[in-house]
Amino acid sequence: MENWNSFLAFELHLIPYVVITLLVAFTVHEFAHAYVAYRFGDYTAKNQGRLTLNPIAHLDPFGTLLIFLAGFGWARPVPVNRFHFKNPRVAGILVSIAGPLSNLLVAAIGIFLFFIFIRAGVFGLIPVAAANGLETFFNLFVRLNIMLFLFNLMPFPPLDGYRIIEDLVPPRIRPKLTQFEGVGIVVFLILVITPLGDRFFYPLLQNGVYSVTDVLVAIFQPILQL
């Protein structure tokens, strides 16, 4: 067991919670991309079966594996055809940001439900082991969704943050960004899977997760008078 834990980003007893969280987080994230694109007139994702809440349609093997090994990852990108948008730049930004925002919304729902359970006294009505397991699940569920929200907003290809930058820059700059996209992906992977990640990605993500969590908690606590 100790040998396995040395290779995984999560302890073995947390893996079921991680799996459930990823099925929800990745599915909602990619569905949000597909839905917003569909609403703006691009049926590409819908025609390829991606406008669905079926997790199988969205999981990426490598991105999912990386979650267990490195603590973060991604799903299979939703195909988007910008030529179907009346206003490609605005629609492109909204489609790109829809995924990360959906993870933030899911995290907020998780915190809200956790406080509802506290308010209703659920944790006192169930066995201690079950209460501890439920609390652990909520903690992981919220943390991973916020992490995916922040991670996907980073300005590196192929993440959503990079796509947003592509649509924000002047049209004449976009082709130049595309030329260096392959190099950007390589640089991104080097930063993520090498010890450099310990100095850049992990501290940034962890601090961001704590900050966003504190904000969400500060919003819901007064509402539920906890």
Rank of each mutant, 00 (worst) to 15 (best):
P127S: 13
V128N: 11
I146Q: 02
P127T: 10
R143F: 09
F149C: 07
R119Y: 13
A130C: 02
F151N: 07
R143Q: 12
A107V: 05
Y162E: 01
L144C: 03
P170S: 14
P171H: 06
F151Q: 06
L125D: 11
A129W: 07
F149R: 05
P170D: 14
G124S: 09
T178S: 15
F123A: 05
F115E: 12
L177E: 01
A120N: 12
L150Q: 05
R143G: 03
I116L: 15
F156C: 11
P170V: 14
A107P: 01
K176P: 00
G161F: 05
F137M: 08
F149M: 09
I109P: 02
P175L: 12
G110R: 00
I173G: 04
V169M: 09
I126P: 01
N145Y: 07
G124P: 02
I126F: 06
P155D: 13
G133H: 00
F115I: 13
V128T: 13
F112L: 14
F137Y: 13
F123E: 04
K176H: 07
E166H: 03
A130R: 08
L168R: 09
Q179D: 10
A120C: 09
L153D: 01
V128H: 12
R143Y: 07
D167C: 11
A108D: 02
I111K: 01
I126S: 06
F137A: 05
L134M: 14
V169D: 04
I165C: 04
R143M: 11
L177K: 03
L140W: 05
T136H: 12
T136A: 15
L113T: 06
F114D: 02
G133Y: 00
I118G: 03
N152V: 01
E166P: 00
P170E: 14
